[in-house]
Design a binder for these strands. Structure first.
Lengths: 206, 206
DNA sequence: TCAAGCTGGATTGTATACAATCACGCAAAT
DNA sequence: ATTTGCGTGATTGTATACAATCCAGCTTGA
């Protein structure tokens, strides 16, 4: 439902009333309203009363802004995780990482990627920080739906190496190295996502 | 409605079903559900299906975690605002600041405080960052309802000086100084809020 | 011509009835 | 004694009807 609302080639500022969504999806207004409220909470639509929900713009600039915030959160989490190193945690994370490396299937790879990021977030010891990181995981996943998952389908071998660098820095109890590794990882991801958003922009306007 | 749900002396883990909320507030389930969804989006309750909504714990530790995330966001916004200084913006902000200094009434003071933080967030140039900072403003305001607004009612003169330090650092185009000033400001606020949460904890358990 | 007020349509906010799902307790079998 | 299965009540998910609100366009008066 939530992801369905975002499908299609809407442009920033496009309006969608509840009645239109009802007609398009064949469900009643109640779940439509709840889905719109959820999207509004994630910052992807703006609810204006009696005017319909307006989609937020979602081009390269918005992707960059999104990743800038996500980077703030996750870099801090990596720094904290390296500071409060937990050996049991590290052992399990390395095992999960090996499983991820073996799975080249795109979907499974992304699932393991999210698990790793979530594990680092939990290891920060700040539950709200971890919750926000999870929320941004949701937003990024919706973004993949928006800009087209195909473009971002594969976990590259470089991505695997970036993950390994983060875990090793945490293992060595080097907070700044862990932060830098996480920053680098997310900058790569931001670059890739921004390019995909640019491609989508051209496809829509052309 | 949203703030009403949070009133009272619930402890972390307390459950509230929709039916109970309906009975307590005299409205139907629909607005109750929407309010609970909103609170869940802000991370203040956890929705478990067929088990009622469980309140998140909200003691000193949670307040510290909350302010740690808020500090991450706002410190970065102050840094960016100092980097991309806009003189018109600064002029208006200083004027608003003077108005704030003159208003000692608690409510008006907090309103101007939020306006100042929002202005700095906007000046960062990152709209999503600004949106998240606004969201944390909402969360902190709800927190004041939870821990008791009286305890945090006044804008102290020290707070005014902290604001002034931030604006002056931005005016001097010194990003790191602006970041440090913002960090200091929020650390003071976090300390005050944490003490209030501790007082509430004792009142509830005692 | 312009502005103020009003009316009709559209859109959202709320209430309520019904369907689906799940948790809890009890009983029975191993 | 532990576990497995089922049944019932409780709780949430969905549909739909109705009330409130708002926007646009027209009319009417100066």
């Amino acid at each position: 439902m939530v992801t369905g609302l975002l499908e299609g080639t809407w442009k920033g500022g496009d309006r969608l009333t509840e009645a239109e969504a009802v007609e398009r999806f064949g469900v009643s207004r109640t779940p439509v309203r709840e889905a719109l409220l959820e999207l509004a909470g994630l910052g992807l639509v703006e609810l204006r009363r009696n005017c319909g929900a307006v989609f937020a713009p979602f081009g390269p600039q918005e992707v960059k802004d999104l990743y800038a915030v996500r980077t703030l959160l996750e870099v801090e989490a990596a720094r904290l995780a390296a500071t409060r190193l937990d050996r049991d945690w590290l052992f399990q994370s390395l095992a999960a990482f090996e499983r991820m490396r073996e799975q080249n299937a795109a979907d499974a790879g992304w699932r393991e990627d999210r698990k790793l990021h979530a594990a680092i977030a939990d290891a920060s010891g700040n539950r709200r920080l971890a919750a926000e990181i999870g929320r941004y995981g949701d937003i990024v996943q919706l973004m993949r739906e928006i800009v087209g998952a195909r473009t971002l389908g594969d976990i590259h071998s470089t991505t695997v190496n970036e993950h390994l660098a983060i875990l090793h820095a945490i293992q060595r109890r080097e907070p700044e190295a862990a932060a830098a590794a996480m920053r680098n990882h997310l900058e790569q991801a931001a670059e890739s996502a921004s390019l995909a958003a640019e491609a989508r922009r051209r496809k829509i306007s052309g």
